[in-house]
Write a protein that binds this DNA or RNA. Structure first.
Lengths: 358, 358
DNA sequence: TTGTACGCGTTATCAA
DNA sequence: TTGATAACGCGTACAA
């Protein structure tokens, strides 16, 4: 890699390095004729300023960092790529580099995190997969390094973030399911330590309250993984007044429900309605395709990057927090209860409970 | 962001900048006592050398670039994330930054590509989605910028690449399907301009030849997209001697076949066997789960990065090209032909053709 | 064993 | 309008 520097251009043009620099950076104190010649020579020599020298001088990296959580076994990981695509688009638009680290994002003392932060390779960070009491938040705050979080913790929210409005999305789904006539709706969730789980569950409770439905704790299961869905579902269906519909707060949980239901000989949606959060390809390709609330991860990425870059430009701007409302897509996995005898029976029982509850 | 430089450490330790530099970089001409004190001060001050200054002086970026094709609507894109994860892992291990560009990777004159190359932000590049006569290859070659391609073109292969062995994988699937007793096996592919399509199709032909089966052009369809699979399948099944099995060279084509078959009232695998290339989550979650050849994209990413970094370290090392053999996973979408009357009838017809062919 | 001086490529300051 | 000079933070001959 032969590299042509500003000196080469200066020599070739018979000018000083200073003049060349100013000519190329559009300073207004350089003669137009001179600027033209400089440009010509620069083009001829195929000159491009070194990012390093420039950054060293200006103490700005012109780059942002992104830590991708390595939960690469999860089905919804696909959305990450769209998210990255969105970030990349914004970065390209604003002439900023995107540095990606795949090291454990929660290890604040680890290599991946430190590289980016300490060696000043980036002007800011997009941090993902925010947990309760996430160590990165106070760390970055103290270092005064601009950052935007993708996702919210629960307790402390005094930082810029962008997130899907989990409560709103869940309420949309619930309104749809309740509107179909369901009264006993189970909630299947992952560990509540995940910030998104907290908000989605809050939406579930709020929807029940709004519809004046009984909020039966027996219908709620937290801390589930792909493996524990089947037993949980069997458990729920063994209740004296089993649910007629299931809401899964993540797509992979919903797919597990689908498999478990099939294993139990239940038809979706005839015997059991199913709706999920996250409208992924897997959800769309399921049989039947699942009713889901989804959002554009690409858009989310674009916004996250924009938020961060604005913050870098002007660190004192008021705290920016953005919630994106997801969209409900009704598909074939939800139907009115009581399409079959099982459903019918279940529903009657549920209604009794419902009335008892009031 | 307050930044502590080597000067601060020197001042605090009462030493010269040089000594501090050498102490921290493990030079052997510095007293152990001095080194200890320097380390102490550096830690106390939380000093970390600036990546920019270091790179400027050494003319090495300590970073590699990756262009992610923005074909983000394709179902198999999921694997990209694993690929990135693999690259990231190798980078972290070797203390190298990963710069990701999502701009159009094929636009050699575009921003995304130029940023990385011209401003010398990276020491090398991983280029993906290689096409026939890909403009990036000669460009990078001329610039003498080290690179590794993910995927192969067809004509010119005089550059380092890493790829899945498409021919081998397809032959594995074909051997399995032929072993089940199928004689009329359709081939569904995307545009042959995609390098991988060329090799996978070659594997198909080779497998037929090896089994001394008739290579009937009527069974082969190139240039398919998600939409055109259904008509193609209908077309194939309307042949006088229709196929009893279908091989799809990409997962999303296979899923489309599954849907189309269902729409036609055909059961997989009873009426039609189906096998695909690319063992993605979509394939695994399909109903029935599809027989597929797959590979670890993470592993591929790790290898690509390793190949590139080695090449950067020693540009004159012999051309490294690595083909990863995929693994066949037999699932429920393939079965012997003739399980049903339709299958039976079809098979008999096929056998006649088979004999005619010999 | 330590310090001085210089260079990496660029922009900013100030004088001409 | 242009150019000489310093500075950014670091590494490294070379001298002490």
């Amino acid at each position: 890699m032969v590299m042509v520097t500003i000196k080469d251009v200066a020599r070739q043009a018979g000018l000083s390095v200073t003049t060349v620099s100013r000519a190329l950076n559009n300073y207004d104190d350089v003669a137009e004729a001179t600027r033209a010649r400089v440009r010509e020579v620069a083009t001829a020599l195929d000159y491009h300023p070194s990012a390093f020298a420039r950054n060293l001088q200006g103490s700005v990296a012109n780059a942002i960092g992104l830590g991708i959580p390595n939960v690469l076994h999860r089905s919804y990981d696909m959305s990450w790529l769209e998210f990255i695509g969105g970030i990349g688009a914004t970065c390209a638009e604003r002439d900023v580099d995107l540095l990606v680290s795949t090291a454990d994002v929660h290890d604040v003392d680890g290599q991946g995190f430190q590289r980016l932060v300490r060696e000043r390779r980036v002007d800011g960070l997009i941090v993902c997969d925010i947990r309760r009491d996430d160590a990165r938040i106070p760390y970055l705050r103290e270092r005064r390094l601009p950052f935007v979080a993708y996702g919210r913790a629960v307790d402390d929210l005094a930082y810029p973030f962008i997130d899907v409005d989990g409560a709103d999305g869940t309420m949309q789904v619930m309104a749809h399911v309740i509107g179909l006539g369901h009264r006993r709706i189970a909630y299947l969730g992952v560990d509540l330590a995940f910030g998104f789980s907290h908000y989605r569950f809050a939406g579930y409770s709020a929807a029940l309250r709004r519809a004046r439905l009984c909020d039966d704790p027996a219908l709620v299961r937290h801390g589930l993984g792909e493996q524990s869905v089947a037993p949980a579902l069997a458990d729920l269906l063994a209740l004296p007044d089993p649910p007629t519909a299931v809401f899964a707060e993540a797509d992979f949980l919903g797919l597990a429900v689908l498999r478990a239901a099939r294993a139990l000989g239940l038809a979706v949606p005839d015997d059991l309605s199913l709706a999920v959060f996250d409208d992924s390809l897997l959800v769309q390709h399921a049989d039947p395709p699942l009713t889901a609330v989804g959002h554009s991860n690409r858009r989310l990425g674009e916004d996250a990057a924009a938020l961060l870059l604005d913050r870098i430009t002007d660190p004192d701007r008021p705290l920016a927090q953005r919630l994106v409302a997801p969209t409900l897509v009704v598909r074939q996995s939800t139907a009115p209860p009581g399409n079959t005898q099982l459903g019918q029976g279940v529903d009657n029982a549920a209604l009794q409970v419902y009335h008892r509850c009031k």
